[in-house]
Amino acid sequence: MAISVRHLSKRFGTFAALDDVSVEIPTGQLTALLGPSGGGKSTLLRIIAGLEAPDSGQVEIGGLDATSLPPQRRNVGFVFQHYAAFKHMSVRKNVAFGLEIRKRPKAEVQRRVDELLELVHLEQFGDRLPAQLSGGQRQRMALARALAVEPNVLLLDEPFGALDAQVRKELRVWLRRLHDEVHVTTVFVTHDQEEAMEVADEIVVINHGRVEQVGTPDELYDQPASAFVMGFLGPVTKLGGRMVRPHDLELTDQPAPGAQAATVLRVTRLGFEVRVDVKVGDEEVWVQLTRGEAAKLSLKPGDSVFVMDAGKEIAG
């Protein structure tokens, strides 16, 4: 179901967590709320879930005004960064919780829990306690628990934030696949632009309690609406006072139209990518090359080169 947020504001003391935020989140998509810590994205998610009350504004879920509904009656699934596992219950009991309090017949609960445990690959772990699971397993259990009640929308608050890098990467691929199977409208909060770009259909960039830009990952990356979005979504450097992506810059050893003379300062290899710092006039610029490109030029500090901008220009 679609979520529609209108003119939401929320203050904590003198701190404005959300400042007149309006967003439309379409049905069936995976939407990321992306932004730096303390930018208000978790607060927005918690207000949608009813775990926090806004000072003003409106939340609609599936066309119905949910602003004053308690969390119990919003039918949202919520997944917390630190799992919020019911630690005194087995994995099965955790997943069954929402169904049991809805007084569903035992056989149905049994069957549904089996299905969900299979969906999150925890069939073998049904009788364990959450403390006997790894972080990644606990989060998958929490996801199964949230999906059990067939929520209208699924909300995930930094779902992979407490996991180590390797598990994080695995789980986000897995979340994307899960969403392609389940199709429930999903909103997840993250401060990791790579995670948002990889997983989301649409990204809402939030900073200082305001929406900076909404768009697909490609739109945001290629047509950032502000210097903040450009800087937050990928690497940037400045050439002639303008912000450019370092991989949009090209280096040649021959003068070319539009190219500026530069001197190589440093060459740093980072696996496949090579980072070349050059001096253009009195500006320091960095250029991202592939290993092959760098090898062709055989650059070393002190070399004279020419740098040009091959990408689109964005006003800084």
Binding site: A49, Q72, A85, F97, R145
Partner: peptide, 23 residues
């Protein structure tokens, strides 16, 4: 006690009494 357990139970539809009794 992790207060988020209670929030999780609430979003799963548990009433205050159920949250107290079962969580």
């Amino acid at each position: 006690m992790d207060g988020e357990m209670e929030q999780a139970a609430a979003s799963l539809g548990a009433s205050r009494l159920t949250i107290f009794r079962r969580i």
